[in-house]
């Protein structure tokens, strides 16, 4: 276990509150609890819960002695399951600061990473890292031949299956635009680009993903924990045959 003093977070905390915490706790490492850090399963949540929410709870419990506090997204920018996780962790003795950040987009959004020439996994990780430490870098825009819609997958390795000319859509794009609760932006895709619509199994975003895949003739996928060979093969076939 890391001996660093940590501030936990999940989702997209209100940037103002996050900045205040950063100033108040200099030298603390901020850690995104959404990620799969391979910590033991606490079995505090039912088996059929979203793996990202399970990650939050499992990571928090494992890192409890290092965590000074957790900044928890509990508004429309996250989900009910995130709100309930915040309450459960409060009852388990964690110091939780709840934030809601239901901001929608201004007309001109800036999404240089989503449309860049970076490998897809790098795009998604850069966007998520940017929540904690803003990335000040220029990105080269690349024309999209494919699209990836959705949240950062628990099994991030599936993003390696996509070519670099894949643009990012859905919630991850909303995060980059600084508007994680903007449903219109979340539902936007370039309709002529073959797009994989991805959701975590047991997440309410499965509804949007399936609907949009049908509407835009894309490939719908939901994966619980680790992607099976058949899921990977479907992505590969969709890209090769499309």
């Amino acid at each position: 276990m890391s001996k660093n003093k940590l501030i936990g977070m999940w989702g997209f905390p209100d940037p103002e509150i996050l900045n205040q915490i950063k100033l108040k706790y200099p030298g603390f490492e901020i850690i995104d609890l959404d990620q799969n850090l391979n910590h033991p399963n606490t079995e505090l949540l039912p088996d059929n819960s979203c793996k990202i929410i399970k990650n939050i709870v499992d990571n928090a419990v494992y890192l409890k002695n290092n965590l000074e506090l957790i900044i928890a997204s509990v508004g429309e920018e996250k989900c009910d399951a995130g709100r309930f996780a915040a309450r459960i962790l409060t009852e388990l003795g964690f110091n939780i600061i709840e934030t809601k950040y239901n901001k929608t987009c201004t007309k001109k959004i800036k999404i240089p990473v989503s449309t860049s020439d970076l490998p897809l996994k790098q795009k998604v990780l850069t966007i998520m890292d940017n929540i904690i430490v803003p990335v000040k870098k220029e990105f080269r825009i690349k024309k999209a031949d494919y699209g990836f819609w959705g949240v950062p997958p628990n099994d991030i390795s599936i993003l390696d299956l996509f070519p670099d000319n894949t643009h990012v859509y859905g919630w991850t794009r909303c995060v980059e635009a600084g508007a994680p609760a903007d449903l219109d932006l979340e539902m936007f895709v370039d309709e002529n680009i073959p797009t994989v619509f991805y959701a975590q199994t047991f997440c309410a975003k499965m509804q949007l993903g399936k609907h949009l895949a049908r509407k835009y003739n894309g490939l719908y996928l939901d994966v619980d924990d680790v992607a099976s060979n058949s899921v990977k093969a479907k992505i590969e076939a969709f890209i090769r045959l499309g």
Binding site: N217, L219, N229, S230, A237, F238, L241, G242
Partner: peptide, 21 residues
Amino acid sequence: RDLKWVQFIDGKYKDLDWNSS
């Protein structure tokens, strides 16, 4: 142990699925 399908429309790939669970 599994089921998979591919659909073509007008000679071009249109849709697919693979169910192995």
